[in-house]
Design a binder for these strands. Structure first.
Lengths: 224, 224
DNA sequence: CGGCAGCTTATTGTATACAAATACCATTCG
DNA sequence: CGAATGGTATTTGTATACAATAAGCTGCCG
């Protein structure tokens, strides 16, 4: 997409994710426009997208606020992700090409390399991991599904999750990818879906384990 | 949302659904602005929303086209709907209030009345049906889920589906709602989810039966 | 005859000014 | 003292002008 509108989008998004814009805070278009160095027009565009992705909420009179996710909300997001991504895996099993299978293997080998050093290379793990899941989504060949998953997968959350992983968990992740590959080899959609469900659920519990302290704050008061 | 932007949205949407804007047609913001009697600004807003709902697609250079759904796409939409809506039913089972249960019953009674006349009143059936499903979504209490389902449920498709229903199917629909009510009474999420899955899948087959003639046209050529 | 370069036109992106709506505050009246 | 009401300030919505970009065409050259 266009330059200004994109810059505004990623700028605002990163300010939210970094906590620079705190949950519950009201945000004014003009203030953001200044922060991003663009006019209100692209900012409004960006806000629309962020609202669709539930980073931002609007009250009944169109004022915007930074969304405040409780642990409950996060579990719901993970649950939806598990559902959608295992659906993707099932579809992918019936459609995946040899080339895509090969690329999956490459990235899972990359993951193995990244974690078999004595100090695991988490950024490298994450990069290969991201590609791995993207290829499955590509093989599933559904724009709809791709769009919906984008709403539910937050890479920063994936990052914070991975940071909770000890070596054992990282290896297990790698082995689960291997099992997915086996399911794809056999074109077994049910198997692939089942493995994917467990894969995502485990990620949630790793995340929740680490964050259960400040749990379950309510959303701020905005209209449904 | 605001007046002009809303008018543009529903106007364009209805033009697409009525076939006045044919699938594959390129649409220009200014032309739509004239048709809607507003400026380009609210039209762009509307296009963004319609794009998110996959009524409109954009190619790599930001030109907009009316989306062209194949039967495959439609099945995928129904599949996702079945998944999401049964998830909603499961959640709802654990959270639904007495008031919501009572309202569900009222609407299902309304459905019964609408179809037990000698000439079934389809609009009335649809209205009660819509409320019925909305209440379940409300009980599920997940903004995320609500938003996603909005992307996947098209009331015009529901309408065309219901028009395919003979009396037997309409009654079956009513009985399935009854079974959902029973599941909710017992707070049995698994049961509710299972019934809902069947309920939606049956709707898809009724739709597909009637539309299988002009099946499976490819999407128009736009970037992913 | 085909294809490519450069220009022209069509279309979308951005900024800005102004209009409409809403919230906030102060003041007054019960 | 509290609530309602009005006015003012703040914020979002819309229109319009202009900038940037991409598409399409024309004419030239291979």
């Amino acid at each position: 997409m266009s330059r200004a509108s994109d810059r505004a989008y990623s700028h605002i998004r990163s300010m939210i994710l970094s906590g620079e814009l705190q949950p519950g805070l009201q945000i004014r278009e003009e203030a953001l426009a200044e922060l991003c160095g663009v006019s209100r027009t692209p900012v409004r565009d960006a806000l629309r997208r962020l609202e669709a992705e539930l980073f931002i909420r609007r009250n009944e009179s169109q004022r915007s606020f930074v969304a405040d996710w409780s642990l409950d909300d996060l579990e719901e997001a993970f649950q939806l992700r598990a559902m959608l991504e295992s659906h993707a895996a099932r579809r992918a099993a019936g459609r995946i090409s040899w080339d895509q299978l090969a690329r999956l293997r490459t990235h899972n080998d990359g993951i193995k390399l990244a974690i078999t050093d004595k100090t695991p290379d988490v950024p490298k793990f994450l990069d290969h991991n991201r590609h791995f899941h993207m290829i499955i989504l590509e093989a599933a060949a559904s724009d709809r599904l791709t769009g919906m998953l984008a709403q539910v997968i937050e890479q920063p959350v994936v990052l914070r999750t991975a940071l909770q992983y000890d070596l054992e968990n990282l290896m297990r992740s790698h082995r689960e990818h291997d099992e997915l590959l086996a399911a794809f080899d056999h074109r077994d959609g049910d198997w692939a879906a089942a493995v994917m469900t467990g894969h995502i659920r485990r990620a949630f519990h790793a995340y929740a384990e680490a964050h259960k302290t400040g749990a379950d704050q309510p959303m701020n008061d905005v209209a449904a």
